[in-house]
């Protein structure tokens, strides 16, 4: 009985908090924006274990691909921003994307106030404030394995695979990019081809493509013979730069209110 009362009170409390939050920010009334992510290599979907080759002719395959996306913001056509609300006591708004977990590749944030938006910004990784905020839960639970223990901080971007050219004895490729000693997460801004209209009863799904070919042929050319293990901040810097260059908006669907519903993972 006591427990039922407690849960009832807690439920009442959270509904009240929600109601207050909704009242507090007049503009937060709106629909969530959905994001879907596809990992590709050039034009083809990425398949874990398949062999690919870089522009320089190096072979590579991927076995694990996991990374954080966070701090989503939308830029209105008038230049002002809508930032996805985050809360210090939950991991809401921090998304752990894992190629091996289909559910992790679709998430939503918001509610986004109705308006006309020209672009989308996010971090590949975790912001410095949260990275230094102590034990976290949910997607940021360090038990999820995206956390360095020898140089405390989140692994922002993790790519593990193989390359025949890798200088490692087992030809492994191990790229772990992280924010151990204050290295900031890379910010990515993507412009919508035409302004995205969010209304009281219509939102959208932004379909992001992350092209893994650009991990090797990006801002820096990565050659597995020389760079096969990147974990220390210095060695990982080039991989980190390239990880921010993987993303593009492939297309955007309009989503009527009815299609959104209570929606998939919001990172909590």
């Amino acid at each position: 009985m006591n427990r039922i009362m407690q849960s009832a009170l807690r439920l009442a409390g959270s509904s009240l908090a929600l109601a207050l939050a909704a009242c507090g920010h007049g503009e937060s009334a709106g629909l969530p924006l959905r994001v879907e992510i596809s990992h590709v290599v050039g034009a083809a979907p990425l398949r874990l274990g398949d062999q690919y080759s870089t522009a320089a002719g190096d072979g590579w395959s991927a076995e694990r691909l996991r990374y954080y996306l966070s701090n989503f913001r939308l830029r209105r056509v008038d230049g002002s921003w809508f930032a996805n609300p985050q809360s210090a006591d939950s991991s809401r708004g921090y998304f752990l994307v894992d190629e091996a977990d289909a559910a992790s590749k679709q998430f939503q944030f918001g509610p986004v106030p109705p308006g006309s938006y020209g672009g989308l910004e996010f971090l590949v990784g975790v912001d410095a404030a949260r990275n230094g905020a102590g034990a976290q839960t949910g997607s940021l639970d360090p038990a999820r394995g995206m956390f360095w223990t020898w140089n405390t901080g989140y692994i922002f971007f993790l790519f593990e695979g193989h390359s025949p050219q890798s200088g490692d004895a087992a030809h492994a490729l191990t790229y772990h990019v992280g924010g151990g000693s204050g290295a900031p997460a890379h910010s990515v801004f993507l412009t919508f081809q035409s302004p995205l209209q969010i209304t009281a009863d219509s939102s959208a799904e932004v379909h992001l493509y992350a092209d893994l070919a650009r991990l090797f042929d990006g801002a820096h050319q990565l050659r597995p013979a020389a760079l096969y293990s990147a974990m220390e901040p210095q060695a990982a810097a080039e991989v980190g730069d390239n990880s921010a260059g993987l993303f593009r908006i492939d297309h955007i669907h309009k989503l009527p209110k009815a299609a959104l519903g209570p929606g998939p993972a919001d990172g909590t």
């Binding site: 230094g132 905020a133 102590g134 034990a135 360090p142 956390f147 223990t149 020898w150 140089n151 405390t152 901080g153 151990g180 000693s181």
Partner: peptide, 15 residues
């Protein structure tokens, strides 16, 4: 290597 008291035990637990 550990910048927060709460996160320190992760190091010995997993070393």
């Amino acid at each position: 290597s550990v910048h927060h008291l709460e996160l320190q035990p992760v190091a010995p637990i997993s070393n």
